[in-house]
Design a protein around this nucleic acid. Sequence first.
DNA 1: TACCTTATTCGTCTTTTACGAACGCTAATT
DNA 2: AATTAGCGTTCGTAAAAGACGAATAAGGTA
Lengths: 300, 300
Amino acid sequence: MKFDLIDLRLFIAVAEQNNLTKGAELVFLAPSSASHRIKQLEAHLETQLLVREPRGVTLTKAGDIVLRHAKKALATLEQMQSELYPFTDSMQTHVKLWANTNAIHTYLPDDLGQFLELHPHVKLILEEHGSDEIADAVAKGEIEIGIVAEQELNSEVMLFPYKHDRLVLIVPSRHKLAGAESIKFDQLVDFPFVILNEGSAIHTFTMNKAAMLNKHLNIRAQVKSFDAVCRMVSSNVGVAIVPHDSVCHQHELALSIIEIDETWSKRDLMICVNKHKELGSLVTELLRYLTKQKVRPGTL
Amino acid sequence: MKFDLIDLRLFIAVAEQNNLTKGAELVFLAPSSASHRIKQLEAHLETQLLVREPRGVTLTKAGDIVLRHAKKALATLEQMQSELYPFTDSMQTHVKLWANTNAIHTYLPDDLGQFLELHPHVKLILEEHGSDEIADAVAKGEIEIGIVAEQELNSEVMLFPYKHDRLVLIVPSRHKLAGAESIKFDQLVDFPFVILNEGSAIHTFTMNKAAMLNKHLNIRAQVKSFDAVCRMVSSNVGVAIVPHDSVCHQHELALSIIEIDETWSKRDLMICVNKHKELGSLVTELLRYLTKQKVRPGTL
DNA sequence: TACCTTATTCGTCTTTTACGAACGCTAATT
DNA sequence: AATTAGCGTTCGTAAAAGACGAATAAGGTA
């Protein structure tokens, strides 16, 4: 066994991209190096793993086997690091995390709350900043980790997907807005609204947006779950603003989904960390934790 | 994750030996290199894995975790190679295997038979030679793999345990030989014998040894299993020669076990392969297979 | 006290590995 | 039909990693 973990990570990346160059980039290698490494790997295993095609690569059967086991092996080692965390020397006790408004008002409270519960000794220093500012601070090493919205940022940071979601308007199928592609928020403040319980993040958020337009939302119903929101809307009680992911699989309901054409409706959040600096174990742990969190419809 | 597979193998070896120097040797590293590697590993994991004591090392709790996961990860990769075997390029079709008399007449037929069944395209070229001769041929690369008896051989070969067993004499507890430390074969050819079915390897072997002394064994009973042999002997039917491992756990029977003081009674068999040459996948597979075989009492 | 075992440090040398530039190949484009 | 764009590979060079042996340190043992 003469290959190493970089080979495995590279191979996984290449396999998932079906593209050697892109895969190489994901593990910070030049294409030439990647090509060389994979050739060595194939030589050591005495097996062809990829078929090189003019537009990328595809896996052979042997490649599938390697992909599967490589993933498993790396997962084992990730798990190891995770379990190792409590024993880590020089245990870091605080992390500076900056996040944009969206993140701080939506997903973060829940996620961080859970994380802090799991790690009682940890202190988070959480601040709200603009995405560009956050990325710069991460690049300069002023903070360890940030959560931002934009994709195009300071190229000195490494990005991981955090949440991928957007707020949409749902209306009954026969509503006069039904079928519209997208809509501005100010076009709908006068419609009757179905919203979540007072105090929920999205409730507050929506009310604030309306207030900024000097409007007062016409609240027809307040309910306790996204499920209930959808049902109310489909029963013609009113319209509602909800995360797209919490509605997409309610196909049995007579709903029409409309994009909201506002910057705040986009909620693709990315985690960014310094590209070059070695991450402390606590940051690694936090990053691991946050990237594991999936969108949980109905929680927001 | 900046460590590599060598680190993991090294760590496992060191952990199992509780000794850095010996562990290093197992993975063909100088102690200095091993020390350096493990220090790096500890640095990368930000965790102390070993406590260095004057007589070797012991594992910390973190070390235990690493040991467990490292083993699992490596096992995954071994499994991968194993599954990969059928896809291997330049699939080797024959292997030269030399073995000493013992091995050829005892364990090998069974094990090789099974192996060949699993690999229908493989041809084995099996020859019988003396252990030293075999080791030299392996060292020179004339044959890929050998099975030998002695431990002290040409140091250019790498050894793996194959079978660890020895033939012993069993007699009834009240037999006049009972309690003896050891005995020569010629001292017992006149006792009545219980032996395995005609045709079994050990039967043929024993008969041949007697014939070499110009004696004819006094066969009192032939039975079909080692279990039966033990029962017959404990019932005073006669004495018997059996593999030690097939008798050791028959404590309820009134048996006395006596060493046989002959070279052929030692059946510690080792597999040897070339220390420096990269092993072909077929040889790897065979080696993997043979080292997995455990002594199966009652099979011989 | 002298000695042994075992791990570590240091300086040197070899091997490994990454990179960029040039190249070859194929499919899509003009 | 010629051109362009996307990909993977090859090659030479430069830098980094890694292995080794000798010397060292630290703690038990005879």
